[in-house]
Amino acid sequence: MGIATEAPKRRALGKGLESLLPRVQPAAEPAKPSEPAPESGRPREIPLDQLDRNPWQTRSRFDEAQLADLAASIAATGVVQPIIVRPLPGGRFQLIAGERRWLASQRAGKATIPAIVRQASDEQSMEMTIVENLQRTDLNPMEQARAYERLGREFSMTQEQMAKRTGKDRASVANFLRLLRLPVEIQGKVEAGELSFGHARTLLALEDPETILKAAQKVAALSMSVRQTESYVQGLLNPEQKQKGDEKVKEPLDPNVRQARDELQRSLGLKVKIEDKKGRGRVIIEYASLEDFDTLIDVLSRQRS
């Protein structure tokens, strides 16, 4: 929950709501009492039954416990941070941002909710809903992946453009988009929280859907950590490194070299192999597509600049 104005930190994350959604300009003549009065950016109380859900909402799941807590807070102290809506024909309004507050207000038995009215086209509303959600931290990895994919599909945005609009780096955007290559069953496990983003990104190195499914089942059954999953996947990719009669993967690397390899893999989202012999060797980075290669070049170029 925030204060009555939009949180300042949002303005540092690409274009915020203020810059993309123009304010409704005051009418030259006073509006009729039966019509929604134009606003100049100040919140007004809008009946909950006059609000329609945003059809472009990115979020597909809401934590029921958190929603119940928010409803209890709203019942006690009201909605502190106004939602953002746009006017529709017939005196109705459509949500742009604040669906959790809207749902919680309904549960709290409220009749109205404070809202800031903005003029926005369908395209502006869709883009801002997606971008605003991506700037939050509580979307699950698959919701974020689909949101980035939709920005690219609906608005022909490049990964670099998506990164700038959401305040992320391009490598992060690319890593989320790669999750969409996972089999549907695995995407469901990530969305349900059964597998983390780190687990999912590690499993992507296997590429073959059937192999990924089998590996994911074992990872979940044994409650493997991300580090254990990395070792397990390396063993599948390099079976010659396994000890006979043992599932453990040999780790001959110096701990410092191993740590450097793991950090590179997490940073790049790609499989990295370091061959080290007494301080000399080579670093091998594998990529599965031209998109991965472009991301790699972009990251390395930024490191040099």
Rank of each mutant, 00 (worst) to 15 (best):
N238E: 13
P26D: 07
G16Y: 04
N54L: 08
F293Q: 04
R136T: 14
T295M: 12
Q66H: 15
I284Y: 03
S40P: 00
R201T: 06
L17D: 11
D292C: 11
R181I: 01
A12Y: 13
S301N: 08
Q66P: 06
I297M: 12
E275T: 14
E247D: 15
A4L: 14
L206I: 14
M157W: 08
L17T: 12
E45S: 11
F62I: 07
Q243W: 09
N54T: 10
W56A: 14
A75V: 09
E207S: 13
V79Q: 13
I96D: 05
L236E: 13
E45K: 08
L67H: 08
A97R: 00
D262A: 12
R11P: 00
G78N: 04
L51P: 01
A192M: 00
R100T: 10
L203R: 06
I3K: 15
Q265A: 15
N54G: 14
A171H: 03
S196H: 09
W56Y: 15
L182F: 08
E39Y: 11
D52K: 03
I284W: 03
K110G: 01
L296I: 05
V299Q: 07
L20Q: 09
F93Y: 10
P38I: 09
D169V: 13
P33V: 12
S267L: 14
S19K: 12
R170N: 10
S267T: 10
Q243L: 14
A76Y: 01
A27R: 11
V299A: 13
P30T: 04
R23W: 12
E154P: 00
V80M: 14
A192P: 00
Q303F: 14
D138N: 13
